[in-house]
Nucleic acid binder design. Structure first.
Lengths: 219, 219
DNA sequence: AAAAAAAGTTAGACTACCCTAATAAAATAT
DNA sequence: ATATTTTATTAGGGTAGTCTAACTTTTTTT
């Protein structure tokens, strides 16, 4: 049906919010190329194929929009990715930062049964190890009601429910800082000078940089 | 490191026993082409690549032999295949005949950790759902001390420990016959006329054709 | 509104994997 | 030992997905 490459294009477009509603609107060829780390000329060729398959809409020199079919398939791939991440984390005891790369491969396995059986085996989880919601079989994804630490006001108390950046580099740094999914914390101060955020968790006070704060999601 | 295609060539060569010791000896290009359902001309081209990578040995117009590196990688792929089959069968409750196709995809997932963690999670199984032995991390595979039902003498009592043919067609037929892995049975008669085998299991007497008997392994 | 910059497209080339058709070498049969 | 058949190889072509370099269209700046 779809190649792994095609699925990666659809996923990237979904990530960029190239949706007619509920997203950031149409995406550009260059923007997509940047997201995929593939040259614009190559992306242009692939877009022709995706248009012919009815997965995206695009006029000559125009912006790219996922069709309903494209959106549904993108969500299906995201669903598989997040279920596999959950499996690797919960059952095989992979660490937070190891799951992503393997899930990038597993998400492309084609099987009618596999995804649903895996979901059942995992006990119908609602979020993956990074706190991202897992879409259901029909492609419905619970809306994210999360805010970055950088955006939350002083005095706000909550738990870390996710990250924006899934790179091993960032996740390992979080581990070193002692920050992990589910950790309760309170924002004690926003420091205007450099955007750092002072917070308190389990009786310990710490300061994280603006960049870290922008990539941590709290409820 | 290796593409899925290359791995499939190695696996096929291993299956054909193209080993300097312990196998049926060197394999031919046509034979390999038949096994893979790919044209000999294509196979010929791929063999050049495998030679350059040091995975097979072959002289011009000569037979094909796996090198030690080739054998080791083939066994690694077989190990992954059988571990995934076990996972699908034991944990996700796939049926006997459903596991193969999905495992054909999963066996190519590349990850240092994944295979070992999966093996641990499954409790270090020694055989897969078809009764085939699972190689260990170092590429050692317990020798098969199994015989087909057709070869076993009258009066022999044992359990079904495997099959030669993994096709869904055959496995579904076995289910219909009420034959499954682990079933205890006794061979009551070999019928000379057409090679059928009469057997008895759990008090029930049945006759299976020669073709079925040749594809069932007993201990 | 013209110039400059950015975004999108086309042309041509490369690798991986597959094919068919023709040819060369080796094995087998007569 | 020659003819036939089988096996292996070469030649040329196709699709998928990638690239660079050059070019065109649209957008932004001045």
């Amino acid at each position: 049906m779809f190649t792994a490459t095609e699925e990666n294009y659809l996923k990237a477009l979904f990530r960029l919010g190239a949706l007619s509603e509920g997203g950031k609107g149409p995406a550009g060829t260059n923007e997509l190329a940047l997201e995929l780390d593939i040259r614009p000329a190559t992306v242009n060729g692939m877009l022709k194929k995706l248009r012919e398959k009815g997965l995206v809409e695009q006029r000559r020199y125009g912006k790219i929009l996922l069709t309903e079919a494209g959106r549904l398939h993108a969500v299906e791939v995201i669903r598989k990715h997040r279920l596999w991440e959950t499996f690797l984390y919960e059952k095989l005891h992979f660490t937070w930062d190891e799951v992503h790369d393997v899930a990038e491969q597993l998400e492309h396995i084609r099987s009618v049964h596999l995804t649903d059986r895996l979901e059942e085996f995992l006990g119908y989880p609602s979020v993956d190890p990074h706190g991202d919601p897992i879409p259901d079989k029909e492609g419905r994804m619970p809306p994210e009601v999360r805010r970055t630490l950088a955006e939350s006001e002083e005095g706000h108390a909550g738990r870390i429910v996710g990250v924006c950046d899934n790179s091993a580099e960032f996740l390992q740094y979080l581990d070193r800082l002692g920050l992990s999914l589910g950790l309760r914390l309170t924002i004690t101060r926003h420091i205007p000078f450099d955007g750092s955020v002072e917070l308190e968790s389990a009786g310990i006070r710490m300061i994280i940089t603006r960049k870290v704060a922008e990539n941590l999601l709290v409820d």
